[in-house]
């Protein structure tokens, strides 16, 4: 089975993120594999181990994305492809990424493509579905269970806490939700072996794309941090009065009632 994983490098949101002049500061920021993409890598490896085949991890990013790809290789993926857009593209959006991937997949025969449900940085959840749509294959988002038997695929999908059970067939794109699996740590031998695994680097030229073909459809006008949480207010006095005051505050100040 030809299995592909779409992987994105993201900020580690557990670390402090600084914004200045409407841009996130790269210096000192920690980068990780998008956590939802880790589920995708783990699932791809498990599916390969069960059904045979090969796992290729693909990212659209910059030179530094190699680190995340190597980590996926250390976890057990077989090959990696870095589509480096650093020198060719100023700003991209989901359209850009999906378009680049569409060109990449044009001459591939993918049986299964796995992506994260969303990336934790921009959280659009669009790239997977856009790609599936342009490749003309089925897709299911937020999957929490994936069972493949021949061409038939049985899926459990998270729908706002409920489970939807779906039967579909290969070729297929799925986006992975928390609960699908427990991503492994890359083992030491895995890390050492990752050095020798193939990592191909492409630019958009190699995919016969021009800058204009992939020009972003959206424009980011500003980026800012959420306002700092203010201290809570403790109401005092008679319980009866407190309730009245609370209701009035909810109505007039917070305007939620």
């Amino acid at each position: 089975m030809n299995i592909y994983v779409l992987l994105k490098k993201t900020f580690d949101t557990e670390e402090k993120i600084a914004v200045s002049g409407g841009v996130i500061e790269d210096d000192g920021a920690e980068f990780i594999i998008n956590p939802y993409d880790e589920y995708a890598v783990e699932e791809a490896i498990n599916q390969r181990d069960a059904h045979g085949g090969e796992v290729t991890v693909v990212t659209v990013g910059d030179e530094d994305s190699e680190k995340q790809l190597r980590t996926a290789l250390a976890m057990g993926a077989d090959k990696a492809v870095l589509i480096n857009t650093e020198d060719d593209l100023e700003d991209g959006d989901q359209f850009t990424t999906a378009k680049v991937l569409e060109a990449f997949f044009a001459d591939k025969e993918a049986d299964l493509i796995l992506a994260g449900n969303v990336a934790i940085d921009e959280a659009s959840g669009q790239v997977g579905p856009r790609l599936a749509s342009s490749l003309g294959i089925s897709y299911v988002t937020t999957v929490t269970s994936l069972k493949i038997d021949g061409e038939t695929v049985n899926i459990e999908k998270d729908v706002e806490g409920d489970v939807e059970i779906i039967e579909t067939s290969l070729p297929l794109l799925v986006t992975c939700q928390q609960g699908l699996n427990d991503p492994r740590y890359p083992s030491l031998p895995g890390i050492m072996k990752a050095k020798k695994k193939p990592l191909e680097e492409l630019e958009i030229d190699d995919l016969d794309l021009d800058e204009d073909d992939v020009e972003a459809k959206t424009r980011t006008t500003d980026i800012f941090l959420p306002p700092e949480k203010e201290a809570g207010r403790v109401l005092e006095g008679d319980v009866q009065d407190q309730v009245k005051e609370l209701i009035s505050l909810l109505k007039n100040e917070a305007k939620v009632l």
Partner: peptide
Amino acid sequence: TKEQTMIKKM
């Protein structure tokens, strides 16, 4: 090195 960084992170 990349490997050392990965080992540290893991």
